[in-house]
Simulated assay, not measured.
Amino acid sequence: MSMLHPASLGFILACAVSLSSSAVILENGMPILWSQTVSQVTELPTQDGILTPDPWRYLNRMSLYRLLIAATDPYMGSMGPGPTENPMWGLALQLGWMQTSGRLADPTGLTTCGLQTGDAMCISPQSWWSCVNHFSSALSFLSAAQHGLMGAGVQVQLQTPAGSEGYCTTYVECSTQYPDAMTKWDAYFQALKASTESALPDNEKKDSILGAYWVAQMGSLQASASCNAKQSHYSSEEVLFANSWMNSAEYVSAAHFHSSLEKSVKFLTPLPSRVLREGDVAPNIADLTPEENHSLSIFSWMRSINTFLGGTLVNMWKGAMCSVTTREQGRQMLEQLLLNPSFATTSFLSLITGMTTSC
């Protein structure tokens, strides 16, 4: 009888917990299986002197985020005094949530990739969620390496599954296929380096860094439109949630959300702990927690209001996020809306209107 790899066992235990409670986001205070990721660039797979990580293995992809956080931490002094203030913690935690909620598994059912009963550490290239996340992890890591953040002269060639088209694997290839997104990541890492010479007060420096970060992250999400065909493998409810989740990025990016470890945990914990099925209608999904049902209801409400207003809610919000001060207020409002069930949705609309007039 074959023994389970410790990583697979840890993941399966995390998934077992998630069957009866909110999504499992942390393990010993860190993203899922963080302790088994690499902490040095030299620990990644190499071939002929070139780094060859496989982002279709969970530990490899999470390792890219760990290395990115470590490489950019020296520039994060304005973010706050703690060791987990880097905005890229949000992406690492998001990957862990996708894993434990089953969203990195093969949705076609043709393979056991990502399944607890199959290859639990596999990330399926057929998953819409893993495809979208690839554009955040791969493009940012390749850009960071290009700008010397992984060490002088480090070259990277990402592995890709056989038969999977559309996934760029080198800086040059990604820059050719997705020039807008790569240019924005380049600008972010250049801005980070320049921030050490900036004389701005910390709150303005922080706002500036977060602004550049979210411009880059939105560039990745826009490039991930090439993943859209993969949504056909999911229920209509999961597709609605996925699109609402993408749309929510417009709000958090405009507010320059500080996606530190602590704040990201708050926003990710109430997200659905499993892939939604046909007939799942919040707030009455029996096997999801009240918090998960609430977050899905809020996503649904924002989608309905935006449709009712002819798509202008996002534009109203962006218009209101016109200064360091209103963006700080915006971050607090988003937290209230998602996490406080007693916060009236009407308050959200009236506050946006008031903030817009002050711009």
Rank of each mutant, 00 (worst) to 15 (best):
L4A: 14
L4K: 02
P6Y: 08
P6N: 10
P6E: 14
S8K: 03
S8C: 11
G10M: 03
F11T: 06
I12P: 00
I12F: 05
L13M: 09
A14I: 00
C15P: 00
V17Q: 13
L19K: 15
S20K: 10
S22V: 09
T37S: 13
S39I: 05
Q40Y: 11
T42N: 13
L44T: 09
P45F: 04
Q47F: 13
D48F: 10
G49C: 09
G49Y: 10
I50L: 12
D54P: 00
W56R: 01
L64R: 06
R66W: 06
L67P: 15
L67M: 07
A70Q: 15
T72V: 05
T72H: 09
G77M: 08
T84H: 13
T84E: 12
P87R: 05
M88K: 05
W89M: 06
G90E: 06
L93E: 02
L93N: 05
Q94N: 13
Q94L: 14
Q94S: 14
L95R: 02
G96H: 01
T100P: 02
A105G: 01
L110H: 11
T111F: 07
T111D: 11
W128E: 11
W129L: 01
N133W: 06
S137A: 15
A138P: 11
A138T: 01
A138D: 02
F141R: 00
H147S: 04
G148H: 04
L149S: 08
A152M: 07
V154T: 13
Q157Y: 05
L158W: 02
P161D: 05
G163P: 15
Y167S: 07
Y171H: 14
C174R: 01
S175F: 00
A181T: 03
T183F: 11
W185N: 01
F189H: 03
L192C: 10
L192F: 12
K193P: 12
S195E: 04
T196R: 13
E197M: 15
D207C: 10
A212R: 07
V215K: 06
V215I: 13
S220T: 02
Q222E: 10
Q222G: 04
A223E: 01
A223S: 09
S224P: 03
N228R: 13
K230Q: 14
Q231I: 05
S232I: 11
Y234A: 10
E237Y: 08
V239W: 06
L240Q: 15
F241P: 05
N243Y: 08
N243I: 04
W245E: 12
Y251R: 02
A255F: 03
H258D: 06
S260H: 03
L261S: 04
L261F: 05
K263L: 08
K263M: 08
S264R: 03
L268C: 04
L268P: 04
L271R: 15
P272E: 04
S273D: 04
L276K: 00
R277H: 14
P283M: 00
P283C: 01
N284P: 00
I285S: 05
L288G: 08
P290I: 00
E291I: 03
N293S: 06
H294P: 06
S295G: 07
L296K: 12
I298M: 12
I298F: 09
W301N: 03
G319C: 05
C322L: 07
C322K: 08
T325K: 09
E328T: 10
Q336Y: 11
Q336F: 12
Q336G: 07
L339H: 13
P341F: 14
A344I: 00
T346L: 11
S347Q: 12
L351G: 04
T353R: 14
G354K: 07
M355T: 15
T356S: 14
T357D: 12
